[in-house]
Amino acid sequence: MKINITQAQGRVPVAVMAPEGYLDGSNYQELIDAGRKLRDAGATAIVLDLSSVGFVSSAGLLAIHSIGLLLRGKQPPDPEYGWGAFHAMANDPGAASNLRLAGPGPLVTQTLKKVGYDAYFEIYPDVASAVAAF
């Protein structure tokens, strides 16, 4: 999976991750690894640009949540745990505060809403507005 990484400046420095294609069981770990590298390099705020992602499965949702946790200094949840992977997010709403989502298309937006991500992550129509919101 190709993931473009750029830097932007809101009120704080923001890393912008822009994966291309799809997020599914074959590549979700790549997104988590890319988020971990950014965190290790000092990133504290990330915008995940979903405008070039046409499909997100439950594995992709897990990757998104994992990056939110990594930014909070926590370990990603065990993928085997299913809904349990989301319990930590519900118990720690701040897990989503350093990760913002931008530009999801209609199908991806529908999937995000099916599992209630729109209640936990701030979702913006584009990268510029997501960066500006930090």
């Binding site: 499965s57 439950s58 594995a59 949702l61 897990l62 745990y81 299913g82 809904w83 349990g84 992977a85 989301f86 319990h87 997010m89 519900a90 118990n91 999937t111 099916k114 599992v115 209630g116």
Partner: peptide, 13 residues
Amino acid sequence: LPLRPPGGLGVYL
């Protein structure tokens, strides 16, 4: 959400 049993996210979707 915190009280829901684990597992089954893919099946739910």
